[in-house]
Simulated assay, not measured.
Amino acid sequence: MPRLNPLAPPYSPEAAAALARMPADIALFRTVAHNPRVLTRWKEGGLLDRGSVTLRQRELVILRTTALLKAEYEWGVHVAFFAAKAGFTPAEIAATVHGQASNWQAEEAILIRLVGALVHNASIDDVLWREASAYFDAAQMVEIISLVGFYHMVSFMVNATSVAREPGTPAFPTRDEAAAAQ
Rank of each mutant, 00 (worst) to 15 (best):
A71C: 07
P23S: 07
E74D: 12
P23N: 05
L48H: 13
Y73H: 12
E131T: 12
I62V: 15
D125R: 09
N121R: 14
I93C: 02
I62E: 06
G87V: 03
E72L: 02
A24F: 07
I112Q: 11
G76C: 09
A101L: 08
E131R: 10
T65G: 07
A86M: 02
F29V: 06
R41Y: 13
L69T: 11
P23R: 06
A132W: 04
L63E: 04
S102T: 14
V79T: 09
A132M: 06
A134C: 11
V53A: 01
V127Q: 15
G87P: 02
L63C: 07
L60C: 06
A80H: 13
T65D: 10
Y73P: 05
A95P: 03
P90G: 00
A132S: 12
T54P: 06
R21E: 07
A106L: 14
F82V: 08
P36V: 11
F82Y: 12
H34T: 13
G51E: 07
T40Q: 10
E44G: 13
E131G: 05
T65S: 12
I110T: 15
A18R: 02
R50P: 04
E44H: 09
A94T: 03
A95D: 03
A109T: 15
T54K: 07
W75M: 10
T89F: 00
S123V: 08
T96E: 09
E131S: 11
T89Q: 00
Q105D: 15
A15G: 07
V115D: 05
R130Y: 01
R58I: 08
L111S: 12
H120I: 01
T31P: 12
R21P: 00
V77R: 02
G116E: 14
A20H: 01
A80C: 03
E107N: 15
W42C: 05
H98A: 08
F82P: 01
A132E: 07
P90I: 02
N121D: 15
A27Q: 11
V97S: 03
E59I: 03
A17H: 02
E59W: 04
F136W: 01
E59D: 05
L69G: 07
N103T: 15
R58C: 06
V127W: 11
G99N: 09
R130F: 01
G76F: 11
G76P: 08
F82N: 10
P90T: 01
D49R: 13
R50W: 03
P23V: 05
A122G: 13
E44Q: 13
W129R: 15
A134K: 10
A33Q: 13
I62R: 05
D126N: 13
H34L: 14
Q100I: 10
W129Q: 14
D125K: 07
E108K: 14
G87H: 01
V97T: 12
R130E: 14
L60D: 05
A122N: 15
G116M: 05
L48P: 04
A80T: 10
A84F: 00
I93D: 06
L69F: 03
G87N: 04
R130S: 13
L47W: 01
A16W: 00
V77Y: 07
L55A: 10
D125S: 09
R113N: 11
G87A: 04
Y73L: 11
